[in-house]
């Protein structure tokens, strides 16, 4: 069953009079429970595709179906609500709320999805233990290292039990050692929870984890390949 279907997607950005076509007639499908890696150079369109999948941005034309919902038909407020309920997003720069503690960052995600219940709080506690930062639950993000912040961001993305995890260069702002640790945690948690995940990266080293690799070559050619198990 296809969890995500992308049909004839086009996306351009305007810079003055110049038009930069980033995605040109893209057709894709992603299966439920799979880890898909979007591979390509910086500026190749990986983040653009993730933003379209999450509903942060909309395509110029084409359709995107997620779990049978056509998100390209939704208006902005509805897309935001859909995103916060169904998508867990992990950003390159963590994007934790600096004025909320680690615990409150997770609780905000629960509150926005109507999951701020004793069970939800218990799940937040469980995930903080899983990423090894329960002891830092009352700290503010700015006193944590980059690796610790990204581990919190992973916990936040999973805490409301979304159908899909989207990760945009999750190790792009981390050193190699920390990046390995973060990927290990992310892979472990996603697989343990049976989640579908799409990760954008420019690092070929991560392709070994993927069920499916979609490589961005040039502006319009997208090569999809299946990992041989």
């Amino acid at each position: 069953m296809h969890y995500i279907e992308i049909k004839n997607i086009n996306k351009s950005f305007h810079e003055g009079d110049t038009v930069h076509k980033v995605l040109d007639d893209v057709n894709l499908h992603l299966n439920e429970g799979e880890l898909t890696i979007l591979l390509g150079r910086r500026g190749s369109g990986k983040s653009t595709l993730l933003n379209l999948l999450s509903g942060i941005d909309i395509p110029d034309s084409g359709q995107i179906f997620m779990n049978s919902t056509e998100i390209t038909l939704l208006r902005e407020p509805a897309r935001t609500i859909f995103r916060r309920k169904n998508v867990g997003f992990i950003f390159q720069f963590f994007n934790l709320i600096p004025t909320l503690t680690v615990n409150e960052n997770l609780h905000l995600a629960l509150e926005l999805t109507d999951n701020f219940t004793p069970e939800g709080k218990e799940r937040a506690k469980f995930l903080l233990n899983e990423v090894g930062l329960y002891d830092r639950r009352n700290s503010y993000p700015d006193v944590l290292s980059g690796g610790e912040q990204q581990r919190i961001a992973i916990a936040r993305a999973l805490v409301h039990n979304p159908g899909i995890i989207l990760a945009d260069e999750p190790t792009g702002n981390l050193d190699f050692k920390t990046a390995d640790k973060v990927i290990e945690i992310l892979d472990d948690l996603v697989k343990k929870n049976g989640k579908t995940m799409v990760m954008a990266t420019h690092s070929r080293e991560l392709t070994g984890l993927a069920d499916r690799i979609i490589e961005f070559k040039g502006k319009s050619i997208i090569v999809s390949s299946q990992r041989q198990n």
Partner: peptide, 14 residues
């Protein structure tokens, strides 16, 4: 920046 982070976290414009 704070408002953008809240939007990214899923808070609506309203």
């Amino acid at each position: 920046r704070l408002l953008a982070l809240l939007r990214a976290a899923g808070v609506t414009q309203k």
